[in-house]
């Protein structure tokens, strides 16, 4: 009954069988913590984010960190080669990950990454899109919905303006980007279910 960690936020999918469940969890946590801190640092730089109440900043980050990481690490999923590169640099084929127990979430991540990368966004566009992903007024636990909504609208307007300026002949890109938001929610839900299975295991 070997155990594998098929999330690319790990350094490797292989788990040392000598390690206790707690040690495995600690190692996993150690892997993703720097990435989470980077998301927080990114959020701090979003104009207006620090003006939100502190509980709302925490709620947005709690709810949206996974989705931001999905956008940020879309390039780990190589659609052409059907491989996933883990943060430690190890590359696994889809077949290998499937044999390790990866399920529907893996396919969904590939679909999402392919569609996002195919939009060919610049770094600036991707960054603004990521800010829109994070600042969503309908996350659970938001106290001051109006403030978050106002910031969200400002960010969406800025994204639309930037996309329109950079892609004058591709007006559908902005719509396609907004349609990625429910896709990310869906991935987030699937991921939460996987986490539950992992914790139960």
């Amino acid at each position: 009954n070997r155990m594998y960690l098929v999330c690319p936020m790990n350094t490797s999918a292989h788990v040392d069988p000598q390690k206790s469940g707690h040690e495995v969890w600690e190692e996993f946590s150690h892997s993703f913590t720097p990435a989470v801190r980077e998301v927080v640092e990114f959020a701090k730089k979003i104009p207006g984010f620090r003006d939100l109440s502190q509980p709302d900043q925490v709620s947005l980050l709690k709810a949206g960190t996974f989705e931001v990481l999905v956008v940020r690490f879309a390039s780990l999923f190589d659609v052409k080669d059907r491989t996933v590169t883990f943060l430690g640099g190890k590359k696994y084929s889809v077949d290998t990950l499937r044999a390790m127990g990866a399920g529907d979430l893996l396919n969904s991540m590939f679909d999402f990454s392919e569609k996002l990368i195919n939009l060919g966004l610049s770094e600036e566009e991707m960054s603004l899109f990521t800010a829109v992903v994070l600042v969503s007024a309908d996350r659970s636990g938001i106290e001051n919905v109006n403030s978050v909504e106002a910031l969200q609208e400002t960010l969406i307007r800025a994204l639309r303006s930037l996309i329109t300026k950079n892609h004058p002949n591709e007006s559908a890109i902005f719509t396609k980007l907004l349609l990625k938001l429910p896709d990310l929610r869906s991935l987030n839900n699937m991921h939460s279910e996987q986490l539950l299975a992992f914790k139960v295991h």
């Binding site: 989470v36 925490v58 960190t65 279910e193 986490l195």
Partner: peptide, 27 residues
């Protein structure tokens, strides 16, 4: 399992990073 972020320990990491807790940062 309504709060996966808390279960992962994310909330603690997020709070510390938001407060700029330098002691918690990796070297």
């Amino acid at each position: 399992f309504s709060d996966p972020a808390s279960n992962l320990g994310l909330e603690d990491i997020i709070r510390k990073a938001l407060m700029g807790n330098l002691e918690e940062r990796p070297e």
